[in-house]
């Protein structure tokens, strides 16, 4: 079903998440784990906060500033991981990285995140499209290589 998404629809989804980002708030509750993501290759500055309980992403939120691609992908990531188990989350992140690098992936688990399937054609935007997924990986302690 996802493959039927037209460029126009993908564009609308990205713009919607850019202009109305989901789960964008700063959480002061100390039970959240926070990671600050920036890099020299990218001017985004994004804080990702997650609360894990019983092996489940109880909550995912974020704050900071970024470009359209990083903002929209972070917003989509936050909706995608919320309520999932750590294992499911890791599977999503692996599939997302695979999609970004044009390796085989399962579009079903990525849901709306498939709107970033074109990123590999704009290599300078890969860091933007993966910033929040790498952030979650850093918190979980897994492999951050896309």
């Amino acid at each position: 079903m996802h493959f039927s998404l037209s460029n126009e629809m993908m564009r609308e989804i990205i713009m919607d998440h850019y202009q109305n980002p989901r789960n964008k708030r700063e959480e002061s509750d100390p039970s959240y784990q926070t990671v600050y993501m920036d890099s020299t290759s990218c001017i985004d500055k994004i804080y990702i906060q997650i609360k894990v309980e019983d092996g489940i992403f109880k909550d995912v939120c974020w704050h900071g500033n970024g470009c359209a691609i990083s903002t929209a992908s972070t917003s989509i990531m936050s909706e995608l991981l919320k309520g999932k188990t750590i294992d499911e989350g890791n599977k999503i992140i692996d599939n997302y990285f695979n999609m970004i690098h044009e390796k085989p992936y399962d579009p079903e688990v990525l849901d709306e995140a498939v709107v970033f399937m074109n990123t590999s054609r704009q290599p300078s935007r890969i860091k933007c499209a993966t910033i929040s997924f790498r952030g979650v990986r850093r918190i979980l302690g897994g492999n951050e290589d896309e």
Binding site: I43, D44, N65, C67, S124, R125
Partner: peptide, 21 residues
């Protein structure tokens, strides 16, 4: 337009500019 999005647009047309601080 966020500066990096702007710079990406220029890149799409072969123009190299830099965004950021």
């Amino acid at each position: 337009v966020f500066a990096q999005d702007g710079a990406s647009l220029f890149n799409r047309y072969g123009i190299c500019v830099r965004s950021g601080e």
